[in-house]
């Protein structure tokens, strides 16, 4: 008796696996995936169509970024932008990502095998994705690169790049720190292997008139925010000459804010990218400014561009990248941006 019960238990668990994942599949997507490639006659049944009755194009786009969008504040907004555009235009969007370049490359190749009609790829590590992106281009799949990769997207055959020029954004930060009268700024690097972050610090070094020190917190990064905060605090205590801190991520900005306040609060703090917390801190005067690359656009625009390419063979940008930043958010406009950030679009 006991044995049969346990066997039943095992099968019940396996059954739950099936049910959970059947339930996770968003309604209305299943028929299109089974078709693999766009097939009008297999369009989603009427009762599963979105409430707004958007005409489904049958197009499928794949988004592959260099972090898991589900676990990242920044990439969550990019993904939301892409999803909103996909919904508006009646496109099926597949999205995912990984900090491991090999996994990101594999994801791109899985999308190719899946027969997507367009690819959106962030190129934080261009060498690693070179082969996969070339493969997509050779297979006739239009590629839009986003975020990092502005220097290489043309070579790889992407139709355009949507992002912010990191170096230029870093230069902008340097000028703002000059205006604020800082003399020694610490540039906090929180990810291993992302050249975009290094370029931001290089841009800062380029325009900032004082001294710039780079500080690596990648061992804790955004995974262990408390640890990152503690490291920054230790650094501020150890080097009392630092009077400005530039973080390169909103989560790190809040960690840096805690550290600055714990260390006495004498340092000016600025950050790349927004979050509701960062906006509150700007309103409260704790953070001087934030450089906004408006990443919602980095999800939204590529979907639109790929839609236009698929339906009308349009390319955007005239051979130049489409810049989404840098925009600056400071005490003057924080309140308005805050309302939008609460919706997850800034």
């Amino acid at each position: 008796m006991l044995r049969t019960t346990r066997l039943t238990l095992v099968f019940v668990i396996l059954g739950i696996v099936a049910l959970v994942f059947a339930a996770c599949a968003p309604a209305g997507q299943a028929p299109a995936q089974e078709a693999g490639a766009p097939a009008p006659e297999e369009a989603a049944p009427a009762e599963e169509a979105p409430a707004e009755q958007v005409a489904q194009t049958g197009l499928v786009f794949g988004l592959a970024v260099h972090d898991n969008p589900a676990e990242s504040l920044f990439w969550g907004v990019v993904e939301k932008g892409a999803r909103d555009a996909a919904e508006t235009y009646g496109i099926e969007l597949k999205s995912g990502g990984s900090l491991d370049p090999a996994e990101q490359a594999q994801l791109v190749e899985t999308y190719i095998a899946d027969g997507v009609d367009g690819l959106i790829v962030s190129l934080a590590n261009p060498d690693a994705l070179q082969d996969s992106v070339t493969k997509a281009v050779d297979a006739g799949i239009p590629v839009v690169t986003i975020n990092s990769g502005v220097n290489v997207y043309k070579e790889l055959g992407a139709i355009t790049h949507v992002g912010q020029t990191e170096f230029v954004a870093g230069q902008g930060a340097g000028e703002r720190f000059n205006a604020a009268g800082a003399s020694k700024v610490m540039c906090v690097i929180h990810e291993e292997g992302n050249i975009g972050l290094e370029e931001r610090c290089a841009g800062l070094e380029d325009t900032f008139q004082g001294e710039v020190v780079r500080f690596n917190v990648a061992t804790t990064g955004t995974r262990d925010v408390a640890g990152t905060s503690a490291s920054i605090q230790d650094k501020l205590i150890a080097d009392s000459g630092i009077d400005g801190v530039l973080s390169l991520n909103p989560v790190i900005a809040m960690a840096a804010l805690d550290a600055v306040q714990a260390a006495g609060g004498n340092q000016m703090l600025a950050t790349f990218d927004l979050s509701p917390d960062v906006l509150d801190a700007i309103e409260a005067g704790d953070i001087l400014f934030a450089i906004d690359q408006q990443q919602y656009l980095q999800g939204y625009l590529p979907v639109v561009f790929l839609y236009l390419y698929n339906t009308n063979l349009n390319t955007v940008g005239g051979g130049q990248p489409v810049l989404t930043g840098p925009g600056f958010v400071d005490a003057s406009n924080a309140a308005q941006v805050k309302e939008l950030a609460a919706r997850g679009t800034r």
């Binding site: 959970v20 996770c24 599949a25 968003p26 898991n68 099926e92 999205s95 995912g96 999308y111």
Partner: peptide, 25 residues
């Protein structure tokens, strides 16, 4: 799991939960 979730068009959000359930089973 990695490829199936993409082919099925699910959020890769669920990848680790899927692994956990597989491991347990």
């Amino acid at each position: 799991a990695r490829v199936g979730i993409v082919f099925a068009g699910w959020d890769t959000d669920w990848f680790f939960s899927f692994l956990g359930i597989m491991l347990l089973a």
